[in-house]
Design a protein around this nucleic acid. Structure first.
Lengths: 246, 246
DNA sequence: CGAATATAATAGTAATACTATCATTTACTA
DNA sequence: TAGTAAATGATAGTATTACTATTATATTCG
C-alpha cells in the first residue's frame, strides 16, 4: 500500500503537487523480504541505492554482498542484517518497482473518466521507458527500470521463492498481481466481452519489458527502435484488439 | 540448419513419413556452444538427456556438473570435455529447442497455401504445450519444453553471453532469430500493412512461454487454465489485430 | 554517563566452478 | 593380436561464493 504524508502549504507552493506527492510517497513492501527495514537507516538506504547500480553494472549473477560492502565502505556482515540473501534483495527491489509503477499508473489515470482514454494512459505509463528520476527518494528510478528490464525474470524464476514458500509464494508478488488486476479491469471497462483481460494485461506488463530488452540487445527481433517504442506497439495492439465490430 | 538423411523404402512403410522424418532429423547447433559434439557419443547423449531432467527437477541454479556426473555414473571432468560450463549447456538445450520448434513449424505449415490458415497453424505449433515425445531422439521434448518454460530467460539474461561475445552474441540465437523472422513474414503475408510484425512475432513466442509459466505458478495473472490455453488467447489476439477494416 | 544497539572486522565452513594431472579403459589400425 | 591414440575416470587442488559466528568498536539514547 501507499502511504501519503501531509506537507505544509509552503512546501506545496515551492514544489508542484506531483513532486510533493512523490516526495511523500512511501512504497510499502512485504516485511518478509527484509530482516531490517532498509528505509529505517542511512546504511539501509545506501545498500538499496548502491545495489541497484551494481546489479545493473555487473549483472545479478556477479553481484555479491562482499563487493557491495566494499563499494559503500561497509561490511558484508552488516548487509546480511538487512537482507537474508541477494535473491531477497532483488525481490525487494522488484516489489519497490512494481509499487512505484502501480502508484504512477493509478495517479495518472485517476481523474480520467473515459475508459478508453484511461486505458491508453495506463498503457503509456506501464510501457514507457523511465527517463526522469523524481530525485526525492534515494532510489534512482531510471537505473532501477534498467535493472528490471535486464533481470526481471530472475525475480520470479528463482526456484527458491516457490519452493521455500509453498502456498505463501504469492505474497512476494502481491503488488504485481494487484497491478495486473487493475489493468485487467481497465481492459474490461473498455470491452466487457473481451474474454482474456488478465492474459492481455500480463502480456502488456511483461511484454513491454521484453520489447525494451530486445530493442537493446537483439534489435533484429523487434520493430522497436529510437523512433518506435513499445508504447506505440502495445497501444496499437490493444486498441485493435478491443471493441471489434465482428 | 536441419539435415535429413535418406531412409529405405522398408522403413518408410513400417513407420509413417512424419515419424521417419523425425527419426532422421538432426538439429544443427552452433559449434561454439560445445567443446565436443554431444551427439557424437553415448556419453554425450546421456549428458544432454539427463541434464534436461535434472535442471527441471532442481532448477538451473542448483544444477551442477558434479551432481549430473553422479547421476549418469560418469565424472564431472568428463562432462567438462563436452561443455565449457553449465550456461553453455543451457544455451545448447535452448538452441536445440528452438531448432526443433522451427522444424515443426515449417513442417506443419509448408503445404498450406492460404496465408491465414498458415499463420494460424504456425501459432498453434508455437504456443501449444508439448504433450508427445517423438521417442526417436534421446531428447525428451515434453520435459525440455517444461525446462524452457521455467528457465528460458536465463538463457538470454546470462550477462556472460553478451559480455563475452560482443558482436558475436547473436550467433547463439541464430535459430530463434530465424524462427521469429519466419513468423514475422507469415504475419506480413496476412496483413501487408501491419507495422509491427517482428514485435508481434517475438511477443507470441515469448509471451506464450510466459503464459504457460503463469498458468502453472501464478494462475491469478492469466486467463489460461485447463480449458483455455495460450493458443486460444494468441490466436484470438492475432486475428483481431490483423486485417482491420479501419 | 552508561547501556543498549548498530556496525565493523575477522575468521571459518561448506559448496561451487572450475583446472590439472595421472590412471584406466576402449577403440582403431598396422 | 599387439600397440597406440583417444576417451573416460579418479583424484586433488584453487579461487570464489554464500553464508555463520564471534568479538570489537562506534553510535545513539535515556
Amino acid at each position: 500500500m501507499i502511504v501519503l504524508l501531509l506537507y505544509s502549504r509552503e512546501l506545496k507552493l515551492k514544489y508542484g503537487i506531483m513532486d510533493i506527492l512523490m516526495q511523500s510517497v512511501r512504497i510499502e513492501i512485504n516485511e518478509k523480504l527484509y530482516l531490517k527495514d532498509p528505509e529505517s537507516s542511512s546504511l539501509g538506504k545506501k545498500i538499496v541505492e548502491e545495489s541497484i547500480h551494481m546489479i545493473v553494472e555487473l549483472g545479478f549473477d556477479h553481484f555479491t554482498f562482499k563487493k557491495l560492502g566494499a563499494k559503500i565502505n561497509s561490511n558484508e556482515s552488516s548487509i546480511y542484517r538487512y537482507f537474508e540473501n541477494k535473491q531477497k534483495l532483488l525481490l525487494y527491489l522488484a516489489a519497490w518497482y512494481w509499487g512505484w509503477m502501480e502508484y504512477r499508473m493509478v495517479f495518472a489515470t485517476h481523474s480520467i473518466s473515459d475508459s478508453k482514454e484511461k486505458l491508453e494512459k495506463a498503457i503509456e505509463v506501464l510501457t514507457q521507458n523511465v527517463e526522469e528520476d523524481n530525485a526525492f527518494s534515494h532510489i534512482n528510478e531510471i537505473v532501477l527500470n534498467q535493472l528490471i528490464i535486464n533481470e526481471y525474470s530472475n525475480s520470479y524464476l528463482v526456484k527458491e521463492v516457490y519452493k521455500e514458500n509453498k502456498g505463501k509464494k504469492d505474497d512476494y508478488f502481491t503488488i504485481c498481481k494487484r497491478l495486473v488486476a487493475r489493468l485487467s479491469e481497465m481492459i474490461t471497462a473498455v470491452d466487457k466481452k473481451y474474454p482474456y483481460p488478465l492474459s492481455l494485461a500480463s502480456t502488456i506488463v511483461e511484454g513491454s519489458l521484453h520489447q525494451h530488452f530486445l530493442k537493446e540487445h537483439f534489435p533484429t527481433l523487434t520493430n522497436c527502435n529510437d523512433k518506435i517504442n513499445p508504447t506505440d506497439f502495445f497501444t496499437d495492439l490493444i486498441f485493435r484488439t478491443l471493441n471489434q465490430k465482428n
